[in-house]
Design a binder for these strands. Structure first.
Length: 219
DNA sequence: CTCCCGATAT
DNA sequence: ATATCAGGAG
């Protein structure tokens, strides 16, 4: 039976992982979803569900020119918006949610994007993951975003054993220093897109290899 | 739990 | 053909 690593050992390993990520990717936050305003980011994140950010950016390039105000989204024609965002997938639900969400922003929030988890998740199409993206990116609130990459890679790195996003978020808050919470998400996405790819992870060329209990030995 | 769903890589 | 993509609603 494999010996379990102690708390101190794990803390030391995490420090090395964070240092390697900072060294490789830098410490400046960057957003992969193009936007100029908070409400644009909110709409982009709603559309990013089960869709690549590159695809969302292709759509928003035209979309944010056509609907250049929050009010235009709130008053958009459903069928027309469905066609406008068709290529992001799940377009019936996303279009419906975007309109309902923007109506709520206009009617109940003075056309501003709210700050709290409760207010954000009360919006149509906004779950915990989207709410945490807004809190971290727009309001600079320390928050852990658990998306598909964070879930997969945090599990591989042995920072959580859970499948539940809320539990993963809690585990990561305990494991990671608060000042790395926001950066963890974007660093792990960067890693997950280039090296720790879901279908075929390139463990042989991963700079976290020696710190990763989930690495696969390739022949 | 199921369903939503197109685009892309393998 | 199949897995995967900055998930969320019912």
């Amino acid at each position: 039976m494999a010996r379990r690593e102690t708390k101190a050992q794990q803390a030391e390993r995490i420090q090395k992982i964070l240092a390697a990520l900072d060294r490789e990717y830098g410490t400046e936050y960057r957003c992969y979803l193009n936007h100029e305003t908070p409400w644009q980011l909110l709409i982009a994140v709603i559309m990013s569900a089960q869709c690549t950010d590159a695809r969302v950016n292709m759509v928003t390039a035209d979309l944010f020119r056509k609907y250049d105000t929050l009010e235009k989204f709130a008053n958009a024609d459903l069928k027309e918006l469905e066609q406008d965002i068709h290529s992001t997938g799940f377009y019936h639900m996303k279009a419906k949610n975007i309109i309902a969400c923007c109506r709520d922003l206009v009617d109940k929030h003075g056309s501003e994007v709210p700050r709290t988890i409760e207010e954000l998740t009360a919006l149509a199409g906004v779950g915990r993951k989207t709410a945490n993206v807004i809190r971290g990116n727009i309001y600079n609130e320390p928050s852990i975003v658990v998306d598909t990459h964070v879930k997969r890679i945090s599990r591989k790195l042995g920072l959580t054993k859970s499948e539940d996003p809320v539990k993963i978020e809690q585990d990561l808050m305990k494991a990671l220093p608060r000042d790395h919470w926001i950066l963890w998400n974007i660093h792990i996405i960067t890693l997950g897109r280039s090296i720790c790819i879901a279908r075929r992870p390139k463990c042989g060329e991963c700079f976290l290899r020696e710190f990763c209990p989930g690495r696969e030995d390739e022949g």
